[in-house]
C-alpha cells in the first residue's frame, strides 16, 4: 500500500486540513490546562522546604521542556525543507520559531520569579537558566535572519542552515555551561531535583506539558495558515478562497 504523502504536503491542500485541526488542539490545550492547574494548585502537596512558591514549576518546567523540544522540531522541519525542497516544512519551521521563543521566555521569566523568594535575587547564573538564555538568543538569531531576507526561498534555506548549526550546538552549549557552572560553584537552582518530589507533582508537570504541547501545535497551525496565505497570495487557489464568503 502506498500513501501519497505529498498530497498533504502541498500548501493548498494542507491549508483546510490545518483549519479543521486547530479547534481540536485548542480545546485539548484548554482542557489539559484546567486539569493541570487543578492538580498543581489543589492536589499536589505543599513542599516541605520551599513552601507554596515551588508551584511555579508547573509552568516553568513544561515551558523549559517545550522550548528545547520545539527548537529540535523546528530544526528538523527546516532541515527537511532544505534537503527535499518541500516548502511546507520550511514554512512549519518558521511558524514554530515564535512559539519556541515564547516558551523560552516563559521558562526564563518563571525561573526568575522563582529565584526571588528562594535566593533573594531575580537572576542567578544557574546552568539551566543560562542555557535557556542562550537558547533564546538562538531563536532570535533564526527569526532575525529570516526577517532580514526578502526572498522567501532564500530565507527558508538560510534559516535552515542556522537552525541545524544551532541544533548541533545546543547540547555542546548545555554541557559547557554546566561545566562552567560547577567550576564557578554558582547557585544551583534545581527546580526538579527536590528530594520531596511527590508523584502528583510529576503528574501535574506532565499534564501541563501536554497542555503546552497542544497549545504549541494549535498556534503553530494558525501561524502556518497565515504564512501560507501570505506566500501564496498570488496563486489561483487563494484568489478563489477570497471570493468565497467564509
Amino acid at each position: 500500500m502506498t500513501i501519497n504523502w505529498f498530497r498533504y504536503s502541498s500548501p493548498a491542500s494542507f491549508y483546510p486540513i490545518a483549519g479543521a485541526l486547530i479547534p481540536w488542539f485548542f480545546s485539548g490545550a484548554a482542557l489539559l490546562t484546567i486539569a493541570g492547574l487543578y492538580i498543581s494548585f489543589f492536589i499536589a502537596p505543599t513542599d516541605a522546604q520551599q513552601g507554596e512558591a515551588y508551584r511555579i514549576i508547573f509552568i516553568h518546567v513544561p515551558a523549559a521542556w517545550m522550548s528545547m523540544f520545539i527548537y529540535v522540531v523546528m530544526a528538523a522541519w527546516a532541515g527537511i525543507g532544505l534537503a527535499f525542497n518541500t516548502r511546507l516544512s520550511s514554512m512549519a519551521a518558521s511558524a514554530l520559531a515564535p512559539t519556541g521563543a515564547m516558551m523560552t521566555f516563559i521558562a526564563l521569566w518563571t525561573g526568575s520569579l522563582w529565584g526571588k523568594p528562594m535566593w533573594g535575587t531575580w537572576w542567578v547564573w544557574d546552568a539551566r537558566l543560562t542555557s535557556e538564555l542562550i537558547l533564546l538568543f538562538l531563536y532570535f538569531g533564526f527569526m532575525s535572519l529570516q526577517a532580514a531576507i526578502d526572498d522567501p526561498r532564500r530565507a527558508d534555506k538560510a534559516g535552515a542552515v542556522i537552525a541545524l548549526v544551532g541544533v548541533i550546538n545546543v547540547p555542546i552549549i548545555y554541557f559547557s555551561v554546566k561545566w562552567w557552572n560547577t567550576l564557578h560553584q554558582g547557585a544551583s537552582v534545581s527546580l526538579t531535583r527536590s528530594p520531596t518530589m511527590a508523584n502528583t507533582m510529576l503528574i501535574g508537570m506532565l499534564v501541563m506539558a501536554l497542555a503546552f504541547w497542544m497549545y504549541s501545535i494549535a498556534v503553530m497551525l494558525m501561524r502556518l495558515r497565515s504564512i501560507i496565505l501570505e506566500r501564496e497570495r498570488n496563486s489561483d487557489w487563494v484568489k478563489t478562497l477570497k471570493k468565497q464568503p467564509s
Binding site: G141, S144, L145, G166, N169, I173, V177
Partner: peptide, 22 residues
Amino acid sequence: LTLGVRGGGALLSLLVLPLYVP
C-alpha cells in the same frame, strides 16, 4: 549567511555570538 542581507553586521553578531559560548 548574512551576505547581501540587510543589517548584515549586527545580524552576524546575533547569529554567531551564542555559538561562541562553549
